[in-house]
Design a protein around this nucleic acid. Structure first.
Lengths: 302, 302
DNA sequence: CGATGTTCATATATTTATGTATAGCGATGC
DNA sequence: GCATCGCTATACATAAATATATGAACATCG
């Protein structure tokens, strides 16, 4: 550890970790395989530890390398955040905004909101991370997050949107064959779609409706999105956001009056970004769009 | 923003920000002024914004550059953390550990503890950040922190040490001239040493002893350390850790029975570091050393 | 079992980045 | 008011990092 290694070595290191080979990393970075190889050699030399076991079909990371991966990942996200901030004009709505949202929200709800936003601001680029793994606002992995739980940290600008209503739904085709249950008890004989993991959301459901606990599920998935598409495919009865089902005439909201789960929704961003026009504008558009969405959930179908 | 700039540019950028000139940054990094200048040029080109206003006596950062500084700082701390982790042997107690503690603890209490630790492990390097600004354990600005408030975040390995007792102290010389107060009320006529900023610690003191609020202070400082040295210099009566005063025969603990503030103390480190022998060993040594210190605080003087 | 497509390692050529030397500018001090 | 000292900017020579080309090892597939 004589002299600090080039920070570019860390980038090469991370890329090799992710790609699994020097060649693939080289393609990714627009460099060549010997170059990446030399970077890894130099880094190993600098830290005095072996980082990869070379083989003729790739590089296998050592334990040391795996220990270092989180740091390298953070370097990458920070560098990306820096670049994002830098290359956006200060007083114009331009540049890239990274948004994080759950799969369902990100895929089914946000696109039209983002489309409107980009109509208004053609220079605005949006990166959407639609995943249920929550990304860190403090470290700026994302600029803005739509969350289903209230963000606790200070230094965040948080806006509560309200509750997205969830309810039992099924495809018209399914109901024509199996009948439409009118009470929770009648659900017992039906093909039910369930979740295969315990999430906060499921625990809440059990709390609200203890009966749900005893139901037998014939299809389970950990993905809320797959859950929704399973309903749409007529597999059985499941729970989804009423606002998703409403525009689709084939989807029927079951026991609309007896059963509803409210899904609290927040939009959050780092306070320091509120002076950034592109973030400010996107934040506001998300708030407005999601408020409209919740409003539309509660309208009775035309 | 065609191609991602070299990460080394960020390092040069940060160093210029910190040093205020290309030449100074070059000296810092072991490069030359034209090289750093080219890095800045290239970075400005890449992000499409002016980062510095050049003048013949240095570089003045633009607002854009100042916005980017926190990101660059984080890159630097992360790179340092990576290197620290990498260059320590996995199964040996070697390499560098970064510790954060308050000024008083870091300067007056920890050194003997660290001395013992390094006697036991000669290969262990310690970096001590003795500052009342709290550094982030999550982002590994430091590996281990001694805190006066309970760390809240998950993913931290936290050990409560107990309460460090604080009390009124004065130099024997002062008391010989001005007399020794026996009650809180008698403090009124004395030269008192106070704090010039509101801290959680002071608010707590007020809560415990409302009288303290009405006292007139003749010397104020925001630094706890300066507060302590002011007592030692005989400026007047002030509050400090009883354990600091006890070994010094010239310092007298006043109203030992009437007045005591307990200062809760915790040692914390990131959970992922508990597999690192050097961190583990240092953590344990700090816990042990601080427990001894608290014990010594409570012993009556020989 | 040989052909093909991977991979990494090595030697050589080329490009790129860096260092050196110097000039110009502005502030400070005698 | 001139000398000095710091800084940046530029031109040029050099050193360093890179790409290219190739060979050897291993897996996959017909």
């Amino acid at each position: 550890m004589n002299i600090e290694p080039s920070w570019d070595f860390y980038r090469s290191f991370l890329t090799v970790l992710r790609q699994g080979s020097l060649s693939a990393a080289a393609r990714e970075l627009g460099l060549t395989q010997p170059t990446i190889g030399r970077h890894i050699d130099a880094l190993e030399e600098a830290v005095g530890a072996e980082l990869f076991i070379r083989s003729s079909n790739g590089l296998l990371p050592t334990d040391v390398a795996l220990d270092l991966q989180p740091y390298a990942e953070m370097l990458a996200t920070t560098a990306a955040a820096l670049l994002r901030t830098a290359s956006s004009q200060r007083d114009k709505v331009e540049g890239t905004v990274r948004i994080s949202a759950s799969e369902v929200i990100g895929i089914e709800v946000l696109p039209p909101i983002i489309a409107d936003l980009q109509d208004a601001y053609p220079g605005l680029q949006v990166e959407l991370s639609a995943s249920d793994a929550l990304e860190d606002l403090m470290n700026r992995e994302v600029d803005i997050a739509v969350r289903m739980a209230e963000p606790q940290q200070d230094a965040l600008l948080v806006r509560r949107i309200g509750d997205i209503p969830l309810g039992f739904h099924a495809h018209r085709r399914y109901l024509e064959r199996h009948g439409t249950p009118q009470t929770m008890a009648e659900l017992a004989g039906h093909r039910l779609i369930g979740f295969d993991r315990q999430t906060a959301y499921i625990r809440m459901m059990r709390k609200l409706h203890p009966l749900a606990d005893e139901l037998a599920y014939s299809f389970r998935t950990s993905s809320h999105l797959a859950h929704y598409t399973a309903i749409r495919a007529g597999i059985g009865i499941g729970i989804c956001q009423t606002g998703l089902a409403r525009p689709n005439p084939d989807l029927v909201h079951i026991m609309a009056d007896e059963f509803e789960i409210p899904l609290g929704t927040w939009v959050a961003m780092h306070e320091s970004l509120k002076t950034s026009p592109r973030c400010r504008v996107t934040f506001d558009a998300l708030v407005r769009g999601l408020l409209n969405y919740i409003k539309s959930c509660k309208e009775t179908r035309a």
